[in-house]
C-alpha cells in the first residue's frame, strides 16, 4: 500500500515537472519583454555602468538588495544565538 502511494506521488510530481518543462518558453525569448528592452537600451546611459546586471541589482532594484542584506543579517544573528558563549 505504502509503495503504491509513493509511486503515485512520484508520478504526479514528475508529471508536473515534465508539463512545466514542455510548456517553457524557448531560451532567450521571454513572454513579457518590454522591461528587458528598457533595461538593455537605457541602463548604460542612465547609470553609466557597463554591467547591466549590477546596475539592476544596486540601482533599479536597490530595495531587493536591502532585503537580501537583511536576510543575511538575520541568518548571522540566528547562528550566533545557536552557538553563543554561555556564561556560567
Amino acid at each position: 500500500m505504502k509503495k503504491y502511494v509513493a509511486l503515485a506521488a512520484l508520478l504526479v510530481v514528475s508529471g508536473f515537472f515534465l508539463l512545466s518543462a514542455i510548456e517553457m518558453h524557448s531560451f532567450g525569448s521571454p513572454a513579457e519583454e518590454d522591461m528587458d528592452r528598457y533595461f538593455i537600451e537605457n541602463a548604460q546611459e542612465e547609470t553609466s555602468t557597463n554591467n547591466v546586471v549590477t546596475s539592476i541589482v544596486f540601482d533599479y532594484r536597490g530595495f531587493d538588495t536591502l532585503g537580501e542584506a537583511t536576510v543575511l543579517f538575520t541568518a548571522v544573528v540566528g547562528v550566533s544565538l545557536l552557538f553563543r558563549r554561555l556564561r556560567k
Binding site: S48, T54, D59, A69, L72, S80
Partner: peptide, 29 residues
C-alpha cells in the same frame, strides 16, 4: 564610472564576507 554603484558594491561585499565568515567561525567554535 558608475556613480554610487561601486560604493554600494563595497558595502555589500564587506557585509557578506563578514557575515558568512562569522557564520563559519561560530560553527567551528
Amino acid at each position: 564610472t558608475a556613480g554610487v554603484l561601486p560604493l554600494m558594491s563595497w558595502a555589500v561585499g564587506l557585509k557578506v564576507l563578514a557575515g558568512l565568515g562569522s557564520i563559519i567561525l561560530l560553527m567551528a567554535y
